[in-house]
Amino acid sequence: MLELVKVTSGYGSVAAVEDIDITVPAGACVCLIGANGAGKTTTLLTICGLVRAFSGTVRIEGRDMTARPADKIVRAGVSLVPEGRRVVASMSVEDNLKVGAYVRGGDPAIADDMDLIYTRFPRLKERRFQYAGSLSGGEQQMLAMGRALMARPKLLLLDEPSMGLAPHVVNDIFATIADINAKGTTVLLVEQNARKALSVASYGYVMEHGRILFADTAEALARDPRVIAAYLGMRAAEAAAG
């Protein structure tokens, strides 16, 4: 579904990610874990065409989509749920969902998909005519996911969906991600909450300082002492000692 080959990208002349290879097979749920500033967000923005790759290739369903404009990436079936959710605060919940379906033009099935989103997130239906800016963090996360789903993506990119949310809300969000993936949408998930990410993903990449350190199945990563030490909440010294 998605293939990054030796991609280097960044801002201005400064590379934030270097020489990374990532493969996301169709139907999979793959996560990208790593500390703040490791280059995870830059990787997603490069896929989306918001950050330009200096070198390397981004392939979507086998087609070279490197440095194509962002709207072409969305039309190719890739939607992003951005970090910090970025719902349009000054628009209603319903209009946010409608703008998510922008690339589908006058597709008559848009109304049905909106009903599906409302079935998935009943809170959004209750608040459909409220300004998105008046929603709670968890509701905004649901709306950002709903907006991305309205484009009917084949590949959903999620950037830190758990950020700033209460633990029970995080559980709901991750259950939803697992369900979206189970219904056939390929997922690439970026998370600082490695434990949660590895619980829904089947495969994971570990990033540090703009590079992929290693990659493995989610189960293997969850047992990997390096991952446990750095990302699963135990102190490095303890992990090294035992």
Binding site: A70, D71, V74, P82, V88, M91, K98, V99, Y102
Partner: peptide, 23 residues
């Protein structure tokens, strides 16, 4: 209208407009 929502989204943030596919 779709054009109107696109204009309002660009007004909010050009990057947000881009990630939903607005030209």
């Amino acid at each position: 209208t779709s054009v109107g929502r696109a204009i309002r989204t660009v007004a909010f943030s050009e990057d947000v407009a881009r990630i939903v596919g607005v030209e």
